[in-house]
Design a protein around this nucleic acid. Structure first.
Lengths: 339, 339
DNA sequence: GTGAAAGCGCTAACAA
DNA sequence: TTGTTAGCGCTTTCAC
């Protein structure tokens, strides 16, 4: 390609030293107004683009944050990513995204790629961090990595330097249950997820506590797991629930995607959503809006979540003592699927 | 944080020079088997991670490809991104993702960020490149950028060094029309999109040609634009179409997301999808699968598309003369929404 | 086959 | 206020 314009060209053109150019460019140190103008003129004339790579090497910093999610095709992760990105860009950082697609080995390799890339921090959402039984190898990896660079996750990984910004599943579930109980529902089912996934486990725990407090006692009768967190999983889980007698009057799906399958199963049986059975779910992504009927869903303020994550990253980079965070507001969007 | 381990530490430990370590690490030049082993041992013992940033600076290359899309929350873009990512990672490259969210100014700023980041190439899907009336300023930007670094887009941008890997909208539309005509439909509507968007324009053109060739002559009677490429846009467009008399027996939506709104409008009117009116759409994302009824949709082999894009990028980086590409296979998934 | 040393573009002491 | 210079970690001639 073409010869790159460097700080040296600017210095020459402006008749100053490279140090001065650097000062002007970064606004560090004192520079006489006149000199500054000369430099700025040269920058404009030569259409100079600073080389961030060289800058990063020189300062032993980086302005690239690595982001690890299981799959951006899932709107939940896409929401988080986009919000993080907008805020990070605003702060002068860029995001290097990796999808590990449910592969634990890929997940670990991603860490190596990010380290080699010398990212200034790592954000890791979902996957292994959300597993109850954090496997030892994974924790060891995070432990090592988090000593070298700030790591922010979506759930606590004990015994490491990482910090988390957590979606409060318990409060989400409470909100959902209060809503459904308030509507008069007595038999509420819980569909989807796996118990070894922390978020699912938390939802389930809260669900059971809420029922107990209401004096409702059918234990796990209306709980159905699903292997996968997708439509198929929701469909199969709901089929199990539809075998129960009496049928529940409402069902909570652990995510919007799972709810899609739940809805299919219900309609297939000839029952009407919102009339025979109410359906509510987690995440409040656009999936909930495009379903028919539209789904009541409880989710996060993704914009705020993104900001919290990036603020945490920035704080840790500055060496601040950061506390785990799980005080995000919970939003419930009441739609037609619940009566 | 902690002191980084560098190539110097390895050299010292192995009792060789840094040059030799570099040779071993990169497999360049000849190194005696014995020396190689010593170096490799040192690398392992010190758990050395090469600093790609330094390497890139030194070689004046980069292994980061910048990717610009309008919004990864749209499953169409997410599909492309993930496939590009997997293939690029395989080839030793990472992707820096930016969403410009329909903002032309942000789109241009993204280019500057990517250039500053010294990405080795830029992939730009949608947005301005897909506009018929490429505004001059934008073309100038691409023209400048494409002289410095390979740029691969989703549509031709004339007068620049950029190359494109194009989804062949015409063939997609033809496939869809052949399918619907084969089913016996005579009045086929086209919903959504804007005419100044190239992909939409191409779809429309092919649609009209196909009708003409069939001797069907109702001009643009059954075409309805939608401002936005989302559910709302589809809904409004379909409302227009539902005012026509006689009603069409089938309607093609310009994307799955638009189809969601189309379906809503039809159901709202009390008509049945696949019986009163058939619905088909473009993209074949998972949205088409989760709709009820499931949508017939024509789309790409995203895996192949991703590979083509990255292969093109790699080719251009090697200085090869690359030709624009639009020979991707077109896949139609026939589902319940068409009868 | 291996090492010494120059350099990639930038920053940051330290001097002047 | 400005310039000189020594790195940052790595690659790559050019000698040996």
């Amino acid at each position: 390609m073409k010869q790159e314009i460097t700080i040296i060209d600017i210095a020459r053109k402006a008749g100053v030293s490279t140090a001065t150019v650097s000062r002007v460019l970064n606004g560090t140190g004192k520079v006489r107004e006149n000199t500054r103008r000369k430099v700025e003129a040269a920058v404009r004339e030569l259409d100079y683009q600073p080389n961030i790579v060289a800058k990063n090497l020189s300062t032993a910093r980086s302005n690239v944050i690595g982001v690890l999610v299981s799959d951006v095709r899932n709107p939940f992760y896409a929401n988080i990513f986009v919000e993080c990105e907008m805020y990070a860009n605003e702060k002068g950082f860029s995001l290097l995204l990796y999808n590990f697609l449910d592969s634990e080995s890929l997940e670990r390799r991603c860490y190596d790629m990010l380290l080699a890339q010398r990212v200034c921090a790592i954000v890791h959402i979902g996957g292994s961090v959300d597993r109850m039984d954090n496997n030892a190898e994974f924790v060891k990896k995070i432990e090592e990595v988090s000593r070298r660079v700030p790591v922010v996750t979506s759930a606590q990984v004990n015994g490491t330097q990482s910090r988390c910004v957590q979606v409060n599943n318990e409060r989400c579930m409470r909100k959902l249950m209060e809503y459904l109980l308030g509507l008069g529902h007595k038999r509420i089912a819980l569909a989807g997820g796996r118990e070894n996934v922390r978020s699912t486990w938390e939802k389930r725990k809260c669900y059971q506590e809420m029922l107990k407090r209401q004096g409702i006692e059918y234990g796990n009768y209306y709980i159905a797991e699903s292997g996968a967190y997708n439509e198929q999983g929701g469909y199969l889980a709901m089929r199990e629930i539809l075998k129960k007698d009496p049928l529940p009057t409402a069902v909570i799906a652990v995510s919007d995607l799972v709810a899609v399958g739940v809805v299919h199963a219900i309609k297939e049986k000839g029952l009407e959503i919102g009339k025979d059975i109410s359906v509510a779910s987690f995440d409040n992504t656009y999936i909930a809006e495009i379903m028919e009927p539209e789904l009541t869903s409880v989710g996060n303020d993704y914009c705020l979540l993104g900001r919290r994550i990036i603020d945490m990253v920035l704080g840790m980079m500055d060496g601040k003592e950061c506390q785990d965070w799980d005080e995000l507001p919970v939003l419930i969007e009441e739609r037609e699927s619940c009566k």
